[in-house]
């Protein structure tokens, strides 16, 4: 995998600024309440909210960095750590659970050598669980980014991982 093909771009040094954040800030007619839109934009562009970005947003809005951190840690939608190129989410909703979703999660943990919520060292995969995705007929379900895999068995896990390893960097 190379930098250019990664889904997110590496955050720039604060000295160079964050042009996407600046552009959105300038376009907002009302700067009050700009915090969450700016954090969304930052996450969209850079994949996660680094400390540097949070400090930058704080300075931009002239509010304490502690406030920005407070908001960033309140909403589970914000990532404070860099995520992998592929986000694997194993559904642990009721239907998937009774059809063995836990063994699927365990198989991914074993295959990738990481625990739930962690990211592989090579930056390829982040493993997490989600609740019902509304595809109970396909239980147990695994989502990799926006793609849904149904009726997954522990034996499928390696194939799914390898398939993505092949795509990595493409």
């Amino acid at each position: 995998m190379t930098q250019e093909t990664a889904e997110w771009t590496e955050p720039a040094e604060p000295a160079e600024g964050y042009p996407e954040i600046d552009a959105l800030f300038d376009s907002l007619p009302n700067k009050n309440g700009a915090l969450i839109p700016l954090l969304h934009k930052a996450q969209e562009v850079y994949g996660y909210l680094s400390q540097e970005i949070q400090v930058y947003v704080a300075q931009k809005l002239n509010i304490p960095a502690a406030k920005v951190f407070g908001v960033a840690t309140f909403y589970s939608l914000f990532n404070l750590e860099k995520k992998g190129q592929f986000k694997i989410n194993v559904c642990l909703g009721t239907a998937c659970y009774v059809r063995g979703a836990e063994t699927i999660l365990a198989a991914f943990e074993k295959e990738l050598g990481i625990d739930q919520t962690e990211t592989t060292k090579d930056g390829m995969f982040t493993l997490d669980s989600i609740r019902c995705v509304g595809a109970c007929g396909l239980a147990p379900v695994v989502m990799i980014d926006d793609k849904v895999y149904g009726r997954v068995t522990p034996g499928d896990v390696k194939t799914i991982v390898d398939e993505h390893l092949g795509q990595g960097g493409q």
Binding site: A58, A66, V68, F69, G70
Partner: peptide, 26 residues
């Protein structure tokens, strides 16, 4: 710290049972 002294060291951080009055980036 925020309103009277305008120093802004403290904020409620994290969520739910883990919520505490903490500092930026803990």
């Amino acid at each position: 710290c925020n309103e009277v002294q305008t120093v802004g060291v403290y904020s409620a951080v994290h969520r739910g049972f883990d919520c505490l009055i903490g500092t930026a980036f803990d």
